[in-house]
Design a protein around this nucleic acid. Sequence first.
DNA 1: ATGGTAGGTACCCTA
Length: 268
Amino acid sequence: MRLLTWNINSVRLRMPLLKKLIAAESPDVICLQETKSPDELFPLADIVEAGYPHTHFHGMKGYNGVAILSRHPVKEQYIHHRVGREDCRHIAVDIQTPAFKKPLQIHCLYIPAGGDIPDPAVNDKFEHKLAFVNEMTDWFASVGQSDTPMVALGDFNIAPLEHDVWSHKQLLDVVSHTPIEVEALTRMYQSLGWHDAVRHFVPDDQKCYTWWSYRNRDWKKSNRGRRLDHIWVTKPVMPHVTGHKILAEARDWTQPSDHVPVMIDLKL
DNA sequence: ATGGTAGGTACCCTA
C-alpha cells in the first residue's frame, strides 16, 4: 500500500496536478492539506473518477481543509475539532488490513503555521500552534497505545531536526524551527513512541526538505528548503514500511504547490 | 534589514 501526503494549496486549482501525481505514483491513499474548499465545492466527482471512491473530506471557505482519498474501502471516517475551533485541520479513517487485528488508523493533520513572531504571548497564531500540538500530544496518548497500528501524517509546519532546514543557525528564530515548537513536537512524537518513517531511510545528518518558499526566484538554485511534511507510524507499523519517496520534482510542475508530495510504501 | 510570491476572497487574510 502506497500512502502519500501533500499540502496541495487549493485542491480545485490543482486538480490537473493531482491527476498527474496519481498517474505517476499510483498511491493507494492520498492525504491532502490546505484544500481551501468548502465541502459543497469539493471536486468529489473528479476524484472518484480518478479512482478514489472512498474519499473523506472536511473543508471550509478560503483556508485550511483536509481530505483523505482512498482506493480501498475505509471502515470508519472521523472529523476532529481541535483547540475549540472548527478549522478543518484533522480528519482520520480506519482501514482494515490483513497485517493487523485492529484497523489501521490514518490521521491526516494540518498543524497551524503559527504566524511570524515566535512568542505565544504576543502572537496568538503561534499560541494556537503550540496549543494544537499540545492537544494532539494528550489526545494521542488518550486514544491509543504504542502497540496501536496508527499513521499520523501531513503538514506539521515544524522542521524538528538540524538538517530539516537549510540553515539551523539562521532559522532558530524563524517559526517552524524554533526550540519551543520543536520541543512541543518532540513531546507529540513521544506520546505514542512514534517512528519517523522518512528519517528511517534518510540519515539525520543528511539535508531533507519537503517545502520551498514561493518567495524565491529559483527554489532549486537557492535550495532554502524545510522538511515540514511528515509521516509517522507507530511501532507495529514500522516493520511493514518498505520504502519512501519525496517527489521534489513536483516543485517544478506548472503552477506548483510550495509543498511536494511525500510517500511511504507499506507491505500489508 | 528587508521583501520577496501565491491562493482565495472581496478590497485583505493566511501562508
